[in-house]
Computed example of a mutant assay.
Amino acid sequence: MSLFRLDASIRTEGSASRAIADIVEAQWRDGAPDAPVTRRHVGTEPLPATAWGDAVNAAYTPAEQRTAAQTEAVALAATLTDELVDAEALLLAVPLYNFGVSQHVKNWVDLVITDPRMAPGQPPLLAGKPAVLVTVHGGNYSAGTPREDWDHATGWLRRILADVWQLDLTVVTREFTLVGVNPALDEFTAMAEELKADAEREAAEHGHRLTTARRVAA
């Protein structure tokens, strides 16, 4: 039982998305104490911004005519895809930044998609693999709130992870992480604590699922 974990927070300390993902991983670890974990920190160790363009152009260029940058980009895309293919379960911790997907995550997804094995019409390499997406929001964008349509990241991630890559996806969302940081949100302190507890409970449940789902599939 092996795990691939992606972290997209740009913070090295105090990351809410990492904290929730740590709960998922800890619960998974209980069921797979000796299993390996492959980690990719795209928030603090971003992929080259030009790599996607180089990988795309390389697809239309004979291998012997590719530039060094194109060759490196193709190799990087293959490495990123290998990390997903080789893992039996996936954990992705992706905070909401500026109401959307950060450049770090978009670049990672785009590069993976350039790999020929992930091209449309190819057998879905990742189909059925259990995956947990952890996302955190500074505000509250859940249904019924004034900004319920402001989260433009989670829906897109669902399209990629569940629909395009066909992962067996579950999502854990923690809202109001800026309560206690932004004084304008102080009135929501009690609600934020409840939402945090709910997210932590769900994270533990889904961490357990990562282990049991793969055992059932096997």
Rank of each mutant, 00 (worst) to 15 (best):
M1D: 04
A218P: 13
V134R: 09
D149C: 14
E194P: 14
T50V: 08
V164R: 06
A32Q: 12
A197F: 03
V132S: 09
E45A: 06
V42G: 11
D22A: 15
Y60L: 10
D186N: 04
E175I: 15
F99Y: 06
D163Q: 07
W150N: 13
A19D: 10
G180H: 04
A75K: 11
D186Y: 00
S2K: 14
V134I: 13
L125D: 00
N57Q: 11
A68W: 01
G180T: 07
T12W: 04
T212H: 04
V105S: 08
T154M: 12
D34A: 14
H208I: 15
D149I: 15
A197H: 06
N107S: 11
F4N: 11
S9K: 06
P48L: 02
P116E: 08
D198A: 10
A77M: 02
A89E: 04
T212R: 07
P36T: 14
P46V: 11
P33N: 12
H137N: 11
A87W: 01
A73P: 14
V112R: 10
K196S: 07
I160C: 07
M118P: 01
R40C: 06
L6A: 06
V112N: 00
D22W: 04
D168W: 04
S9R: 06
N98R: 02
V56I: 14
Q27R: 07
V134T: 11
L178E: 00
E72K: 05
H206W: 12
H41V: 15
M1H: 03
A55R: 13
L91S: 10
G31S: 04
L169C: 11
Q70W: 03
Y141N: 13
A192Y: 02
A131H: 09
P62C: 04
I10M: 12
G180E: 01
V94H: 09
V112C: 08
E88K: 15
A8R: 10
D110E: 00
A162S: 13
M118N: 01
A26P: 02
G144S: 05
R117E: 00
A77G: 01
L91K: 14
L91G: 08
L210D: 02
D54E: 09
P116Y: 02
T61C: 12
M191L: 13
T189P: 01
V132K: 09
A119H: 05
